[in-house]
Simulated scan of single mutants.
Amino acid sequence: MHPTGEGRARRVGLLKRAVRIADELGVPLINFATGKRKPEVAAEEAHRLLVDGIHQVLDGTDSDVVLCMEPEPEFFIDTNAGVAALAAELGSERFALAQDLGHCNVVEGDYLASVGRHLPLTRVIQVEDIKNRVHYHEIPGDGDLDFTEFFRILRRGGFDGHVSVELYNHVDTYRHALRRSREVLTAAAAASSGQD
């Protein structure tokens, strides 16, 4: 959606390169986001450029790697429903949703309902905790998210994709963050199986 052709070509080239690397490593998907819309680009034009850029990546790579778009707060597409609408427009099996549980909580009215509603389009889910719907990635257990209900929704929906923890702002205490994430999420997953 960059206002210049050069900027858009750089972004498309980056995604094509990511697909090639994923192919070489045997990685089934890549995760990307729209970025913020520049004020000088109208929303309709940004949408057109976005669709065109995604088509360039899909059509310009001989690959089975799936492009998973992640909604991000304050980005052009910031909700699961926004990615779902784009997926319907693109009509490609190589385009899917990368959910982020914390982002859902920040921007969506009922984050757990959104998770469940969009599971059929989802290939990967990133998790972190969130306090007071503020976009800051907290260690699981340090915020307000209901991980037990989250895992129950995944189980009931038959989700068999990837779930990963995203705590880029806890690199200085990564051992503690990893340990606590594992403890909290393992306990929540176990508790979710007894709620039917």
Rank of each mutant, 00 (worst) to 15 (best):
I21Y: 03
N105V: 08
L29F: 15
V27W: 08
L112W: 12
V124D: 00
F95T: 02
G102W: 12
L58I: 07
N31W: 00
I30F: 02
A42V: 14
V51W: 04
A88V: 07
P3F: 13
V106M: 10
Y111V: 11
E44G: 09
R48V: 04
L101M: 14
T122I: 00
V19D: 00
L119M: 03
N31V: 08
E108R: 12
Q99V: 04
A42I: 11
V115E: 10
L97W: 03
I125D: 03
G82D: 03
Y111R: 11
E45Y: 12
D64A: 13
V66W: 01
R20G: 01
D100K: 03
G5F: 08
E74T: 15
D100P: 00
G116C: 06
A96M: 04
I125P: 01
E45P: 07
T122D: 00
D78M: 14
A43V: 13
A87W: 00
D59S: 09
E74S: 15
D23V: 06
V106L: 09
G5E: 14
L15Q: 07
D62C: 02
R10T: 10
T61N: 04
L67W: 02
G60C: 06
D59G: 03
A84V: 03
D52L: 12
M69G: 00
G5I: 08
H118W: 09
K16D: 01
E6A: 15
Y111Q: 10
I30G: 00
G91S: 04
V107W: 12
A9Y: 10
D52P: 03
V41G: 09
V41D: 08
T4C: 05
Q56V: 08
A113N: 12
E24C: 09
F76A: 09
